[in-house]
Amino acid sequence: MSTPPSPPPDPAERRSDGAALSTGAASASTPAGRAAPALALRGLWKRFGDNVAVAGVDLDVPAGSFFGLVGPNGAGKTTTLSMATGLLRPDAGAVWVHGRPLWADPTAAKRMLGVLPDGVRLFDRLTGAQLITYAGLLRGMDRATVTERTQDLLRALDLAADADKLVVDYSAGMTKKVALASALIHAPRLLVLDEPFEAVDPVSATNIRSILHSYVATGGTVIVSSHVMDLVERMCDHVAVVAQGRVLAAGTVADVRGGLSLEDRFVELVGGRGTGEGLAWLRT
């Protein structure tokens, strides 16, 4: 990685940073204000050993937007989203969810968050229905609501027939869907989905997209990470391009695209396009 590992700001500086933002930057976090973005990231840093995974990410996700996070493999998308959802403590930086500081007051912020992480297991010895119910009860919801919503979610995600099957026996796509249901059960205001369409069949993907669209239409906010530009271009209204742990461009899809297709613009921003030659032996 070419980024020099400059030292992250110390905690005191972090706090003043946050305070300055809440007063200074107009668009950012005025606590609980109507104008507060659904998600605000400021100066997020994460380093694993010598490897800087996220190098100072600043990002505002407007409330009510369908936000796409795109970037090449190893860009730090998953790390950023883990820090934005309270699963990974940042070395420095701050996160606000609808004006609530996530790392200072995790319980309040996490109540508004629905998360679908990538590359982690589920409690897969539970059945699909059990897992969704468990996720609801864990959040302190009452049983009647949980039961009703579990049935709705199972139906909406085409899982009703497999509700009594162990999640460990689910296919990859079904697993994604049941995880999505667990993220939706408490009706969060902000949904953060890491690679939600990976391994999901086209019919289910269409269903999920329409669920997400109607969720956004009724005031919810969705963040999806993906490396399928086409999908992001069609589905999202906002997009951020991330590479090497930094945000290269962010804004509405039209702004970021600037007349090109998102894919071309992405390659232009990120660079590293090969010549397509060099594997002369790979012929049959």
Partner: peptide, 10 residues
């Protein structure tokens, strides 16, 4: 890693 559900549901 299924532990994420405990963390994320606070």
């Amino acid at each position: 890693t299924a532990f994420w559900l405990q963390v994320s549901s606070a």
